[in-house]
């Protein structure tokens, strides 16, 4: 059984450490907040200008002046702080954020990431993604292992030898969590990912057939 969105988020949450300052992207990465281990102190940063993001407000208590980067209403915590976008990105670009979890359209074997535009089709923009991958100490991508072609229904691998969409950053991804498994990427090294975990019931043959990039398999997987 491939992992669900929640199981992928729970796996990404294993990268959290006590005392971490963390930025979570929109989509599955947002779910990571639900899997912060009890007793672990993790501070969530929102790049629109807040540290210490709290949960969604109770109905009737929404505040238009208090939103996250996905424009959703949120709440503050006793240790929260607010600041300008310039200060927010000083945290991000200055290397003060420990972990960034974000989604991807494509990841290449060397850690290149594409997640902000499809030429001629999608014009949304990169938001803070380019700053996050350039400045945050560790970058974790959470994504479906393959995209589905809407016309043909064919599966299109997203972990590739090289990205063919415009890049968000070069050699920036450290870890990729998909519904089928987990890959570590040696982004400053020889540029070959290592499969370090398989989702339950997923075989090496299946994940190989759905991955364009060549990858090594961790010894710990053979032992299992």
């Amino acid at each position: 059984m491939a992992w669900t969105r929640d199981e992928m988020a729970a796996r990404a949450a294993k990268e959290l450490r006590d005392g971490f300052y963390v930025n979570l992207g929109i989509g599955i990465p947002t779910l990571v907040a639900n899997y912060i281990p009890a007793g672990m102190h993790v501070t969530l940063q929102s790049e629109n200008g807040m540290l210490g993001m709290g949960p969604f407000p109770f109905e009737g208590e929404e505040d238009a002046d208090l939103i996250n980067a996905g424009k959703q209403t949120i709440t503050e915590l006793p240790y929260s702080s607010y600041f300008s976008s310039a200060d927010s990105f000083a945290m991000i670009r200055g290397g003060h954020i420990d972990l960034s979890v974000l989604g991807a359209m494509q990841v290449a074997a060397n850690g290149d990431l594409a997640n902000w535009m499809i030429p001629g089709k999608m014009v949304k923009g990169m938001g803070g993604a380019m700053d996050l991958v350039a400045g945050v100490k560790k970058v974790v991508v959470v994504m479906e292992h393959c995209a589905v072609d809407k016309k043909t229904g064919a599966l299109e691998p997203k972990l590739l030898k090289e990205c063919n969409l415009p890049l968000t950053g070069t050699r920036v991804v450290d870890l990729v969590v998909t519904d089928l498994g987990v890959f570590s990427i040696d982004k400053h090294g020889h540029g070959k990912p290592t499969l370090i975990e398989l989702a339950p019931g997923v075989t090496l043959e299946e994940i190989k057939s759905k991955t364009e990039a060549e990858f090594d398999v961790a010894e710990s997987l053979f032992a299992a």
């Binding site: 969604f56 407000p57 109905e59 424009k71 959703q72 949120i74």
Partner: peptide
């Protein structure tokens, strides 16, 4: 007016 773009709440 301070319009809210994504009104997200949790249950009590």
């Amino acid at each position: 007016e301070k319009r809210i773009e994504q009104r997200t709440t949790r249950k009590r």
